[in-house]
Design a protein around this nucleic acid. Structure first.
Lengths: 247, 247
DNA sequence: CGTTTAATTGAGGAAAGTCAAGTGAAGTGG
DNA sequence: CCACTTCACTTGACTTTCCTCAATTAAACG
């Protein structure tokens, strides 16, 4: 299956999950849940703020709160048996997190920029859901999205060489910006290099070298630590999507 | 968080998803759905059979059927941009697959042994769900489990060395056998070496070497291609769970 | 402006990849 | 039931990439 085709389809198809009742688009459901009923929501939610670097919750804690990001970026991570931190996903405004587990959280989360978020008590949300089962599909959709995203991440992790890994990552970030309706002239990277390395399964040194390599080959331009511009789109795409490219 | 503690908790906690209505255990729900109401189910499901190696559905096809395995093993895979096959997950009896996408399947699946499965038309299942929203939580639970499993897989993929990778994989298989109530004297591997390599993100050669290494070091005994016995449990555990072990 | 944190770069070594040849198991047809 | 073909797996030789450790430079922050 071609990549372009897949991307287009993803945009068309992910809107609706036809096997679910309450066949609303995600955008519409987000509106209904988080914008249309502020007054009603206020009863079960509050606004939480986190400083940069602050831990939000940890793997294994009892699951009591669920969050929806208003502004900022969050990293979800696990520690592997060998003690290393592995970032599972980055979360952006409108993303929902905290509900992927059962009785306890299954990942840890940390604010990597200052974060403002809605905070729901899990019990209140449960009641809300049983009163209005249609909103269910919103959550299921979100979880399915997360699942699909995780599978793509696994694919990324098993790529062999650092250059295509990084190019694919940058492309994913760009895609996400597009989805959120932001400009894609520049790619914005709110996280530190270490975080990217932990997401891609590379050492910090290797990641840094790869940034330098892509920059030296004039494929990307590193405006500053948080902003990257794609210069040579053709080679860039080849790297991200290409067959068996190394550097 | 300690590993042993985590495993115990996983067993205790995953049974119920308290933020869901219809707070039934997974085991109970499976019974209700697939054993208690055979007659009712017969109307919306049929039995499907697949030969070893047969493709069940492909990534990108329109999602029309959902399956529950009765006997046999299925591999779910994606092809990455560089053309390589990457196995996302192995599926065993009672596992559900096909519903993780929206309008289309998001992975391909293939029978790696002869497979017998219930086959549901997606549309029929949708009706079933809207009539009985409580069964919803069964599906959500399954998806959350899958998500959690995928995250563990990602962790596995980003481990550096092949020996701990393989040990962890074997341990996962053992754990799964335990969950299914099977004996754990031997680890049964229904899939080919190639499949394991594609799951672990290793070359076939590297995987084979690692099997040989563990065997030479008398950590495991390879009774035959499909059956492995753990001899030195202590070293084995250290490999699978240990900090910074290489070989 | 100085101190701390984040990121880049260099040198050396180790693990896994690739290519290729060889062995073992399984399945088929006479 | 055995010979033959095919497929699955193992092992060897060589190459490459990334990791580790360490030193240096750049940016952020008080």
């Amino acid at each position: 299956m071609q990549k372009g085709q897949r991307n287009r389809r993803a945009l068309e198809d992910r809107e609706a999950y036809p096997w679910l009742p309450g066949n609303l688009s995600r955008e519409a459901l987000h509106k209904v849940l988080f914008e249309g009923k502020r007054a009603q929501l206020a009863q079960i939610s509050s606004i939480a703020q986190f400083k940069k670097g602050e831990n939000i919750y940890s793997d294994g804690e009892v699951l009591d709160k669920i969050f929806v990001i208003i502004t900022g970026t969050v990293a979800a991570y696990k520690k592997s048996q060998d003690g290393k931190k592995h970032i599972v996903t980055f979360l952006y405004p409108k993303d929902l997190f905290g509900l992927w587990g059962g009785r306890r959280y299954i990942v840890s989360t940390e604010a990597i920029t200052p974060v403002v978020a809605y905070s729901f008590r899990a019990s209140a949300l449960r009641q809300q859901l049983s009163r209005n089962p249609k909103t269910y599909s919103y959550f299921v959709t979100k979880i399915c999205d997360q699942l699909s995203q995780n599978q793509d991440h696994a694919l990324l992790l098993s790529r062999l060489y650092s250059a295509p890994k990084l190019a694919t990552f940058l492309n994913m970030q760009r895609q996400a910006q597009l989805m959120r309706g932001e400009s894609t002239d520049e790619i914005y990277l709110p996280m530190r290099r270490t975080d990217i390395a932990e997401y891609l399964g590379l050492s910090l040194a290797a990641l840094s070298r790869t940034f330098s390599l892509l920059s030296a080959r004039r494929i990307i331009k590193i405006r500053n630590r948080r902003h990257v511009i794609i210069i040579n789109r053709k080679v860039f795409e080849k790297l991200a999507n290409g067959r068996r490219t190394r550097k």
